[in-house]
């Protein structure tokens, strides 16, 4: 009797050690994308939905400073972010973001998987479609050769390079791997509470179906006397 229990334990502890694609994607976001892209509407604490511990979330939040009103001399103050703060933007304003990116504006990530034409699949494709421009190509200033784009260029420099991120679970960080992972992360961010939504949905449906069956028989019995 002990044996199956041990197997289960082994499976679960293995699962706890391995990270999910979304967690790895978060790592890519933190180390790469977040230097240009914002996550304006996702709070640090929302990451608990990905299985992050409270300690890890507090740690992540405390690495960032957020505005905190004015001090007694009227100068702007900052404080380390709380878990309830939003992850926000690396730039203080849209203008500065453009200035830092040759006029291009890195789009906010909160709903990008939903609003991007072609969805997550397209994002993953763009990330993997950088190449060196063929001889004689003239690229507009501040843009980079990318085969996925209609005009073959994009204002985002190639963000991913093989081995750029040290995955904590030892997954090897190839460009396709990191693209898939960050795609999964963006998909998660764009659909808040998806797992809870599905779980509550299944229970609600089961309840409604059971009720339909009962009401069906009730109605049949009541109408028996009428229809002939």
């Amino acid at each position: 009797m002990k044996y199956p229990f041990l197997v289960l334990l082994a499976i679960f502890s293995f699962k706890a050690g391995a990270s999910t694609p979304e967690q790895r994607g978060l790592q890519v976001f933190r180390q790469v994308c977040s230097s240009c892209h914002s996550l304006n509407y996702v709070a640090y604490s929302d990451l608990s939905d990905l299985g992050l511990s409270v300690v890890a979330i507090k740690d992540y939040a405390s690495q960032h400073q957020v505005a905190d009103g004015l001090d007694d001399d009227g100068d702007p103050k900052t404080r380390p972010a709380h878990p309830s703060d939003r992850i926000g933007s690396p730039y203080p304003s849209e203008n500065l973001a453009r200035l830092a990116n040759h006029g291009g504006l890195p789009p906010d990530f909160s709903r990008l998987a939903l609003t991007q034409q072609g969805g997550t699949a397209r994002i993953i494709q763009i990330l993997q479609s950088y190449a060196s421009a063929p001889e004689g190509t003239v690229l507009p200033k501040g843009s980079y050769y990318n085969l996925a784009m209609k005009h073959r260029h994009i204002a985002m420099p190639q963000p991913l390079h093989d081995g750029q991120v040290q995955y904590s679970d030892g997954t090897s960080s190839t460009i396709p791997q990191m693209s898939q992972d960050v795609g999964a992360f963006l998909e998660w961010a764009a659909h808040p509470h998806l797992h809870t939504r599905r779980k509550v949905g299944v229970f609600t449906l089961l309840y409604l179906i059971a009720m339909s069956i009962l009401v069906f028989f009730l109605k049949k019995r009541i109408w028996k006397k009428v229809k002939n």
């Binding site: 939504r197 599905r198 509550v200 949905g201 299944v202 609600t204 449906l205 409604l208 179906i209 009720m211 339909s212 009401v215 069906f216 009730l218 109605k219 009541i222 109408w223």
Partner: peptide, 21 residues
């Protein structure tokens, strides 16, 4: 009441599919 009730069950099922899935 019973006939509307039965119809409502189906209506709510469609509604729930939209809301949750």
């Amino acid at each position: 009441t019973s006939k509307d009730g039965l119809g409502l069950c189906f209506f709510l099922i469609v509604y729930a599919v939209i809301v949750f899935f």
